[in-house]
Design a protein around this nucleic acid. Sequence first.
DNA 1: CCCCTATACCTAATTATCTTATGTATTAAT
DNA 2: ATTAATACATAAGATAATTAGGTATAGGGG
Lengths: 114, 114
Amino acid sequence: MYSSELIKGTLKTIILNLLKNGNKMYGYEITQKVKELTSDKIQITEGALYPTLHALEKHGDVITEKVYIGKRVRKYYILTDQGKKTVSERVNELADFMNTMRFLLDLDPAISHV
Amino acid sequence: MYSSELIKGTLKTIILNLLKNGNKMYGYEITQKVKELTSDKIQITEGALYPTLHALEKHGDVITEKVYIGKRVRKYYILTDQGKKTVSERVNELADFMNTMRFLLDLDPAISHV
DNA sequence: CCCCTATACCTAATTATCTTATGTATTAAT
DNA sequence: ATTAATACATAAGATAATTAGGTATAGGGG
């Protein structure tokens, strides 16, 4: 587990990126997928997740679709066209930022800083 | 310039890393050095810088040394032994986190995620 | 000489984003 | 029948920034 400050600011990017390619997911599924993909290193808490999803919806990056599994509800999140733009911008920015940090901290410059 | 959320949580690491190898620096100098090293992409604001420096001092990671240049004061920051431990921990954690993010976002996996 | 920019420190109010805690309810397993 | 997992949600508090303000020295140009 990483100290919480690091995750800050990357949560929206992580969520949006998972929804790429028309991949619709629901909240709980997102937390489990991230946990699995990162070998438990990143665990999205519900208190962070749901407000973020609601903000993304309000901002027009995603729309939702309710599905009932028996009596239990699932709210699927789907990227809008605007969301597709947002995700590529955010991912590019984060990648650029990480390269800058790698250079600044004098880490392995496998990805060159030009 | 990066959107501000990204920088969050990395400021202490950036500062501590610059002070590595007994390299003493003062606040204003740190802002200029980071600006220069990152081609203006990261600009540390004073409102973020000084409270952070004070927190590092309170926590015992740095000690200070006042120097007068004419009548103008400079406060140099120097890593303590404890600070040296902190910097290596934080840099390692950030490097690890960036690799995890690189994998999670399916970016160029030049640095392998094992 | 005055003004502007750069240097150099600092704090306070506000904002954003998280954690922690709590709440509700269904479903599956022991 | 109870517990764990699934699935949603909000509220109080913590943290770490931004924005905006304050003080003061030093140097250069008009």
